[in-house]
Design a binder for these strands. Structure first.
Lengths: 235, 235
DNA sequence: CGCACTTTGTGCATAGCTTCACAAAGGTAC
DNA sequence: GTACCTTTGTGAAGCTATGCACAAAGTGCG
């Protein structure tokens, strides 16, 4: 096969870049709504909250879609990023676990937006099964494999209690799923080839607490000493 | 001031390390519940899903808390990590926006767990104000500054619609808050010294979609061509 | 006491990411 | 057509993070 693309595109966009593309896409959509036709890397970088050199390097991994002296065509760049991210096709998403979080996710507007569609909802609780959300009846978890198969689900969101998460993961993987978004606070063990992304509220809070504490320490100049273990453990 | 600590502790733990400490903490809590007294870096690394050398290096940034030939004392390490993360004190957290997501967050068990306490709930909708959740009445957003001050809130979770997020951020920052966890899909602009962490569902889904597409491309060997813009834009 | 075994803590090489700085490329005005 | 202006795309340097591999430090047994 001939290597058509410029060397930048051969294969493999850095993970750090992929993680930022959604950010750029959102900023671009905002610009498009306001009717902006072209944008410079500098302005887009400000809108996305990143350094402009980084933005240009990120975009250069997709190809050479800018015009020197002018900037980037907003609509065209939206299309190119969407295509790269695989948003020009529709992804059928299943949500497992229709508790508070599952409901929030199902109702989340940006969810249904470009490229994603809630195609199935599952719960183990018979009090919830049958309930309708966003025009979709909740199926019993027993139906997991058959419904996933029937509706062409390719991404599964796990919003169950921590104790159920691994079991759900095992089942959906056995059913052929290779992309999982996990909200349960556990480390999922999965075979190679399966992508798991984790969203973890308490982790984020803990990281914030760390920095908040650092700021407080810096002001008072009195970090806690290392020797106070025994005392503190009494609490 | 005398530099007491070993050189590893002088100041500044790498961000990448800080981001993993909550993970280790969770794994350790699991071990503690099962009654394990000591654990090797190898076993803990498996439980946390990371490389053991990385785990040891991460822990070495906190100090030298292991015993060669034995491993780490589980309880002691839990305490040290908790202390480093600032979880030995209680953080009062306010949730702004009591929609589906806000409710899910307020009810989230792991939230209230070690170190964090929901101290205030705010909403702009008078239909929601006054409602009780987790033993806490929802206050009107007008009361934001006074309630934050009165209850000693130091971390704010923004779970509002995207359009309201920046405004809420501006107000809580003016009220002295320097740590924000943002669930709204917007880039918040904040002054130096304010930490913002973002949790973004659609970003995560888009990253998954990217990898899912890559897998599909690899199988069929037919990535979409770059020239099809005009056609695709008709859709 | 000494030897064999385990496991930590870290020096070092490597890989990946970020940022600077600038040449190359395109647009515009006259 | 030329001179000037703007902005991209990228080489190169610096920084951060990762993972190997091993010396140092501790345990336990005979």
């Amino acid at each position: 096969m001939i290597r058509r693309m410029s060397q930048a595109r051969e294969r493999g966009i850095p993970d750090a870049t992929v993680a930022r593309l959604p950010l750029y896409l959102r900023a671009l959509n905002g610009l498009a709504e306001r009717g902006t036709a072209t944008v410079s890397s500098e302005d887009l970088a400000v809108a996305a909250g990143v350094n402009s050199a980084k933005l240009r390097k990120d975009l250069s991994h997709l190809g050479s879609y800018g015009t020197r002296g002018v900037g980037y065509d907003v609509e065209y760049l939206i299309y190119q990023i969407s295509r790269e991210l695989g948003l020009t096709q529709d992804w059928a998403v299943a949500i497992v676990g229709v508790g508070n979080l599952g409901r929030a996710l199902a109702n989340y507007g940006g969810f249904v937006s470009r490229g994603f569609r809630v195609a199935a909802l599952f719960d183990a609780d018979n009090g919830v099964v049958g309930e309708r959300l966003v025009g979709m009846a909740v199926d019993h978890i027993d139906q997991l494999e058959s419904v996933i198969d029937k509706r062409g689900v390719s991404i599964v969101v796990i919003a169950t209690p921590a104790t159920a998460a691994q079991q759900v993961a095992d089942r959906v993987i056995a059913a052929g799923i290779t992309s999982i978004l996990n909200f349960a606070p556990v480390v999922l063990t999965v075979p190679d080839g399966v992508d798991v992304r984790k969203v973890d509220l308490s982790t984020e809070l803990q990281i914030l607490a760390f920095h908040e504490q650092r700021k407080a320490d810096r002001e008072t100049g009195s970090p806690m000493m290392a020797g106070d273990w025994a005392e503190a453990m009494d609490a």
